[in-house]
Design a protein around this nucleic acid. Structure first.
Lengths: 212, 212
DNA sequence: TATATAGTTTACCAACTAGTCAACTATAAG
DNA sequence: CTTATAGTTGACTAGTTGGTAAACTATATA
């Protein structure tokens, strides 16, 4: 009953774009409304606060990222190393085209909010923690497979290793943003598979070849 | 001539504390003044803008970090691996005690500003880029030594590798902040030396031992 | 001791902040 | 066709933002 609306979706999309290229605190409710062509009264009809919009934007970002990037790569039959390198390749391409449009490397939208808001908003921090938890799960599954295939030592800790890989990805994004250079992402991304290789099974020289 | 003052130093210190534990945009000039017991008029006597205070705070942070952490470690006679692991250890201790005081892991003050402001303030981005450049130089020197000592392959790229190490450190800080868990820093920090080891010289198995 | 000047203080500004509210309007479903 | 209701609108807070201006005061130096 009543009328239908696309205002909510437009606001979420604007939040992803504006907060994604600047920051949470640098983008106001008014600007979000102007950008999406929604009046402020409608904003507060759909979202109790700017924080709640951000929470939903975070969900949308994460779901799109899974659907468009993570699922296709990690449900494929690529080798572990190829999975990680296509992830880096996609990340490079995205940051590269963003820079062509806006002049700026914007980095990872989730990582950006993590650093800006983790100490200020416990609910947002928890949402990001949960996203990071899901994200590392993709990596963990690959690592467990690699251990079962004998490509990684049985005493590799899949959880810590997958967290380390995510940490490295986020760090590489940060450097790309700080240097405003998408090339940084592809250059540093090459080293990603190395995060696992100290836990190589036996004849290390040969295994290093297999992974890197 | 005229009177002397400690207001400037107090403002810089407050900026480091307040912006460091929250964010640039979350801390206002008034709060900076209240926290340091300086009137707003005095603020603008010393700094033309909040941005300029932040630029000076960034300088002070970086100089203290060099003096207290980087110089003692990297001018010592430790092995390369020991240098990196004491850096991680110090980082863990710092984040851990910060959490005890404030309840929050605050991460790296420079990395925080990098993600928040790189797309919004080109001058601040450039200052951070320059700090990161200096920072990686410490690592690069160690890597060059390791190459000369035969511990790393001659085709290791010292610049990319040192940038990769800084990226990993920043990423680990980000994860520590996102999970609000200082333990993350020590746990993930263990894997840091692995960033270099794929470029291991010849008998990889033996070299891995030497590094990790 | 005189004084130029560095530093302090107060009151102020215009613009903006997140958020409220009540009147209004279009429409989906009975 | 009716009507309950989802969505829209614009005017409105109360507080905050970064920054300004001018009068005032303490003091280092000559």
């Amino acid at each position: 009953m009543g009328r239908t609306s696309t205002a909510k979706e437009k606001l979420i999309q604007s939040a992803i774009e504006l907060i994604g290229t600047r920051s949470y605190n640098a983008v106001g409710v008014q600007e979000l409304c102007d950008h999406s062509g929604v009046k402020k009264g409608s904003f507060y009809h759909f979202f109790p606060s700017k924080r709640d919009l951000t929470l939903e934007a975070l969900d949308t970002m994460w779901n799109k990222f899974k659907e468009l990037i993570l699922d296709p790569i990690f449900n494929s039959d690529m080798s572990p190393v190829d999975k990680f390198s296509s992830l880096i390749k996609r990340s490079y391409e995205h940051q590269s085209s963003t820079k062509d449009c806006t002049g700026c490397v914007t980095g990872c939208g989730i990582g950006n909010l993590a650093l800006e808001l983790s100490t200020q908003d416990e609910i947002i921090r928890q949402k990001i923690e949960q996203i990071f938890e899901e994200w590392t799960q993709y990596f963990e599954d690959v690592i467990v497979d690699a251990i079962n295939d004998g490509d990684l030592s049985v005493d590799t800790d899949p959880r810590s290793t997958s967290q380390a890989i995510l940490a490295y990805m986020e760090g590489v994004s940060l450097m790309g943003k700080a240097f405003n250079d998408p090339g940084m992402i592809s250059r540093l991304g090459e080293g990603m598979a190395q995060i696992c290789i100290s836990k190589i099974k036996t004849a290390a020289g040969e295994q290093v070849q297999r992974l890197a």
